[in-house]
Amino acid sequence: MSEDKYPSESGRRRFVKGVVGSAALAGVGVGGASSVNLATQPTGGGGGPTPFVGITNTGGPAPRGMPYIPLELDDEGYLRGVWPEAETVTEAGQTYDVARTELGGQTYSSEWFQYCGRQQAAGVQPAADQDNYFQSVGSPSYNWQAEELSEGDRLRLDHFEDYETWGNEIGDEGVGKPAETTWRSQGTEGVLPVTLIRSKRIEEKANQGGEVGEWYSAASVQGTIAYLNVCTHFCCVPGYKDSPDSPQYNAENGIYCQCHQSTYDPFEPSFETFIALPRPD
């Protein structure tokens, strides 16, 4: 089939057809909110129009950014994601649990991560008793991480101490130092892949005031951010500064998804609304 022939210069990977639901709902606007609620909420927990904050989608077919995960630092210097207390709510005649709180001028909730099949992950259940620390993946793309960390090791802030000079021959040095991790996924079905980045750009924006500054001041830790690394187009796993093909799409200092050439700027937040999928009962 001609549609299966990807241009070799793009680095595009063949993708198994059959991902349904999230891709179809991704393009749904919020104008028909009531009808979408009727279509989603009765079959599971939550879902429907959901305001969120994500990294900005800058190109390609992805309909929106990937959601941030607010951070906090424990007394030993380990990074962990913020997870609100679960509560039971009734909306549009449906009763369900949600983990929700006000943070950085925004309503942060577990529903931010209910797309691309992740609504089925155990870690997205609002009341799930999960470890909120970020753990290193087994085969990271970055040499520094492969040399210093083993699979399952927790990430500390000092793992990023050379963030102002780090580079890997893709794009510019000193843009931001990354790590590939999992979050709220230990011993459960459904992995939540998360990328951490520490950058001077985040430090500067956290101090600039306004909506952006208020968000980064509350959601980042000393220039470190985290986001769910699942492309909103077709659920692929993109990469930050890890593909030699990314300069062709002006993404050498950002995030590039090789599957369909979507690109993102992890240092610029977007304040959007999307149609979250319901969690299974």
Rank of each mutant, 00 (worst) to 15 (best):
G105P: 03
D281W: 12
Q261I: 07
D131F: 00
A128G: 06
Y142D: 06
P67E: 10
K205C: 04
S199Q: 00
D129P: 03
D158N: 14
N229P: 06
P244G: 09
Q114L: 09
R279P: 01
V28F: 11
S136N: 11
P63Q: 11
D172P: 01
L192E: 05
I170S: 04
E204H: 00
G47N: 01
E148I: 12
M1E: 11
Q248C: 10
R201Y: 01
R100F: 05
A219E: 10
D158T: 12
G209T: 04
T224Q: 02
L192G: 00
D4T: 15
G29R: 15
P70F: 09
V53K: 01
P244C: 10
E148S: 13
L38T: 13
E9R: 15
G209L: 05
E161K: 15
K241I: 03
E91F: 13
Q222F: 05
H159Q: 14
I170M: 08
R154V: 00
R156D: 09
D153H: 00
V212P: 03
T95D: 10
C259K: 12
D75Q: 12
Y96W: 13
P247Y: 09
P51F: 04
E204M: 00
Q258Y: 10
P42S: 05
W215R: 06
I255T: 02
A127N: 13
P266Y: 05
F271I: 07
R64S: 09
P70E: 10
G31R: 14
T165Y: 08
I225E: 01
A23K: 14
P51L: 04
L71R: 04
P61M: 07
K241A: 05
I69H: 09
F274G: 01
V36R: 07
S217C: 03
S185L: 02
A39F: 05
E76T: 13
T165K: 10
V30H: 11
S110H: 06
C257Y: 01
H260N: 09
G21I: 03
F274A: 06
L25M: 12
P238D: 08
Q125L: 14
N250F: 15
